[in-house]
Simulated assay, not measured.
Amino acid sequence: MITPEYCRTMARYNAWQNEGLKRALMSLPREELERDRGAFFGSIWKTANHLLWADLIWMSRFDGGEAPAGGIGGSVALARNAADWEALRFRTDGRIRVWADGLKSLDLVGDLTWMSGAAGREVSRPVALCVAHMFNHQAHHRGQLHAMLTAAGVKMPDTDLFLMPAGR
């Protein structure tokens, strides 16, 4: 389904995209970030927090490291302010890259079992499917953020994977 190289590419893409997202978020005042824009999580700020929380919860399942507190409902309040969000986003992107850089093909075989708060029960799915889901989830919510930020008047950077600078 997927390979370690795919994971490394997507981890680099994730970090590149989040750098652009960070600049866009920092360009708006807090009240604009918190304005309800009709997205699933409401605001730019809540969506950015949820995306970061989800990356942390998936990474805890993949690398056995620390998981964020709370569930999906609380995910929108993960970081209290822009500085906290920026620091945690940077560390999380590094965590994803380190994990991806260490992957072997065998790491993507078999099932992953976890207690899913979203499903309200224990779930088992193929590891490769879960990894693909994490990267898809990132793209999904960054797309929402891109649309909300564009509507707020922010000039957004390129998002096309093939435009990712070499050596990222």
Rank of each mutant, 00 (worst) to 15 (best):
M1S: 10
M1I: 05
I2G: 02
Y6K: 08
C7R: 07
C7P: 02
C7H: 12
Y13P: 06
W16T: 08
N18W: 03
E19M: 09
G20P: 04
L21Y: 00
K22D: 11
K22T: 15
A24H: 00
L25F: 08
E31F: 11
R35S: 07
D36Q: 06
G38H: 14
F40T: 02
G42R: 12
G42I: 13
S43K: 00
W45N: 02
W45R: 03
K46R: 14
K46S: 14
T47M: 04
T47F: 06
N49Y: 11
L51F: 04
L52I: 14
A54Y: 03
A54C: 13
W58K: 04
W58A: 12
W58Q: 07
W58I: 04
W58T: 09
M59D: 07
F62P: 05
A67Y: 10
A67P: 14
P68R: 09
A69E: 15
G73M: 11
G73K: 11
G73I: 10
S75F: 10
S75W: 10
V76H: 02
V76T: 15
A77Y: 12
W85G: 09
E86F: 01
L88Y: 05
L88F: 07
D93M: 07
G94D: 07
R97I: 05
R97K: 12
R97G: 13
W99S: 04
W99M: 10
D101T: 04
D101H: 10
L103Y: 04
K104Y: 03
K104P: 00
L106R: 12
D107R: 04
L112D: 00
T113Q: 01
W114G: 00
M115K: 14
G117R: 13
A119N: 05
S124Y: 05
R125V: 05
V127Y: 01
A128Q: 10
L129D: 06
C130S: 15
V131H: 04
V131N: 02
H133C: 08
M134V: 09
M134I: 08
F135P: 06
Q138T: 01
Q138P: 00
H141V: 12
H141E: 11
H141W: 13
G143T: 12
G143H: 08
L145M: 05
L145A: 03
L145F: 00
A147D: 08
A147C: 09
A147L: 10
L149E: 00
L149P: 03
L149V: 00
T150Y: 06
T150N: 00
A151M: 13
A151C: 08
V154P: 01
K155W: 01
K155G: 01
K155R: 14
K155Q: 07
M156Q: 07
M156H: 04
M156D: 01
D160R: 12
P165T: 07
A166P: 11
A166H: 11
A166F: 09
R168N: 13
